[in-house]
Design a protein around this nucleic acid. Structure first.
Lengths: 355, 355
DNA sequence: CTGTTAGCGCCTTCAG
DNA sequence: CTGAAGGCGCTAACAG
């Protein structure tokens, strides 16, 4: 291929990585001069600086950031992010927002998937701390506040994203779950629905709890209460959600409306509705004889507007949530040692009709 | 100076991060013993080991991995991943696959978003190299093979994922675009369709080019050629795809079938078809008078099986693609200096009928 | 089994 | 403007 190599670098070992010394040797200057050039070359004679820069480029040298961060006062430039499921499009959006802000602050992100496993989360955090991350953004899988104590976290600034941990008073950004669920439910109630099903995930997850709370409060406001036999919790995937709603639709007195508290449950609900109508040979669109069930889901998803079932969603921007979480973290960097009142941001939602 | 206080650790500066020395001082052993305990404590008296472990835990000490990786022969435990758009669910799936394998090998991942920007990509890679990543997995935004030369990449092992760079002979994992498009097209041809539209994105992206090639080859095999007026390239979003197909459907001799080369185009196609039938007051299902147009799309999506238009897809698993890319990278680690024949893995696809 | 020494790559400090 | 010395946290190699 191409090898008009003008200068033959002679690293000590053939496979060894280049160091400032190697560059210095080739450029015939001291390592210190190379170091200065790398840091902007403010106090270096312009001609020399250019010469050194050329050598750096020719050799393909990259400064060792790890060694650099070893010196006291130096920052590692790393932010640790742990997510319960990176494959989830929702968290992908969030990650994108985090990356965006981190990049703008010239930081890189270390990403770990906790798979909803608190033990794994602890290990990842510990590893990240070992890599001297400057801060952490965590979608908590664990529910034990002690695991997130300042000492366990090496006094590193951190922010909880999307979920909170009970009893843990720290910076966090959440979706406004309660208002979102409240508004959606209130709307269905105002449309005349009184038998509204609730499909949610484990209440032990803070979002699940908060969304159910909004659902309950909306009923309370009009002097009603959720109908227990129509409340199904704990569906973590599309299949179990589909099954749950199928069962409800087969009841003597089925629900006339459904609130699904997250994507998986919304998708399952749509499938259950479509299949149920097919099974009963009902038309795919609502009619006087066979009115379409009212469906409201928390969180939008890709192609929600292509849903075969009319659908409204409580929407928000995961990417924005990620951005805010990251901004909060960088805020903490700038207010070292100041008042430590923790902030809770609740990202506003909007109701969207996808039909 | 200070009286022996057995419990209270005395770090040099109040906010300084703990080091092995601090632990050693509190545990009343040498730093070396602490180091040994941290590395598994093989040659340490069990009682002493437990004592040290306890101190480590109480103090909340975390070993500095950056300092550790400074020693020669030590690995950084980092893999760099650059992706053109982390927010894209497709790449989120891929990232998950990568993380899964990296984790299994006890490596962490540094993730960067290149936003389809070759310059940004170069900067990210350079930064990652500075952090001494052991390897790189890249979804290339750039198309200049020189940017990926071994010297530019610091001789770090790397793998291209999802796309290739022309003229760059390195390990890569791709979807089997050509066969996928070929098989899909062949099937439509065997069903009797001869006027098949093609909706694709920029041919400059390797996947776009390869998918068109499969489309062309399938025609060639039966002695036909793609009909140029039915080929529309360059639609990057749902709206432009919808518009492109709408135009085709309004031709004197419209296509009887459509091959859409990616998600965005498939969704646009579905919309165009649904609206076109509505506009002409044709029933939403195919009839003898108004037969449904045949639609085949590359890549599946969340609601494919609920499409209002009968649809087949060329499906594959992005997570599996990520896994394979990571496996290939770790293979390279294990075959340092061996034969450097680069491997191209083409992930098999499967045709699915979603009706 | 435990401790001492030295040096990884870089940059702050201080001399020249 | 340039260079030399020293030390960041850690652990191989070598004592003891």
């Amino acid at each position: 291929m191409d090898s008009p190599s003008p200068v033959a670098p002679k690293p000590r070992r053939p496979d060894a990585v280049l160091t400032v010394k190697d560059v210095a040797a080739v450029a015939k200057v001291s390592p210190m001069t190379v170091s200065r050039v790398l840091s902007g070359g403010l106090n270096v004679r312009p001609a020399l600086r250019e010469h050194v820069e050329k050598v750096i480029d020719e050799l393909g040298y990259h400064r060792n950031e790890n060694a650099r961060s070893l010196r006291p006062g130096q920052r590692s430039g790393l932010i640790g992010v742990t997510i319960t499921n990176i494959g989830n499009p929702y968290y992908a959006g969030m990650l994108r927002g985090i990356e965006e802000v981190a990049s703008a602050h010239n930081r890189r992100i270390l990403v770990g998937n906790t798979n909803e496993n608190a033990e794994l989360e602890k290990q990842l955090v510990s590893d990240f701390l070992g890599r001297k991350v400057e801060g952490l953004i965590i979608v908590p899988a664990g529910r034990d506040a002690r695991d997130f104590s300042a000492s366990r976290l090496g006094n590193v600034p951190f922010v909880l994203a999307s979920r909170i941990v009970p009893g843990l008073d720290v910076d966090a950004v959440l979706v406004d779950d309660i208002h979102g669920a409240f508004d959606a439910t209130a709307r269905m109630l105002s449309e005349g629905h009184t038998r509204i099903a609730f499909l949610g995930n484990r209440v032990s997850v803070s979002t699940g709890q908060r969304r159910y709370e909004g659902f309950r409060l909306a009923h309370e406001r009009v002097g009603l209460a959720p109908i227990e036999e129509l409340v199904r919790l704990g569906q973590q995937d599309v299949t179990s959600a589909e099954q749950a709603l199928t069962e409800l639709l087969d009841l003597e007195a089925p629900p006339t409306a459904v609130f699904s508290a997250n994507n998986q449950n919304t998708l399952g609900a749509i499938r259950a509705i479509v299949k149920s109508r097919r099974r009963r040979s009902e038309p795919s669109i609502g009619t006087a004889d066979a009115p379409m069930i009212r469906l409201f889901g928390f969180d939008s998803f890709e192609f929600a507007d292509m849903s075969p079932v009319p659908l409204s969603v409580v929407d928000h921007d995961a990417r924005e949530l990620g951005r805010i979480a990251a901004e909060m973290l960088f805020d903490q960097f700038n207010s070292e040692g100041e008042a430590v009142t923790s902030r809770l941001v609740e990202l506003p939602v909007r109701l969207l009709d996808m039909y």
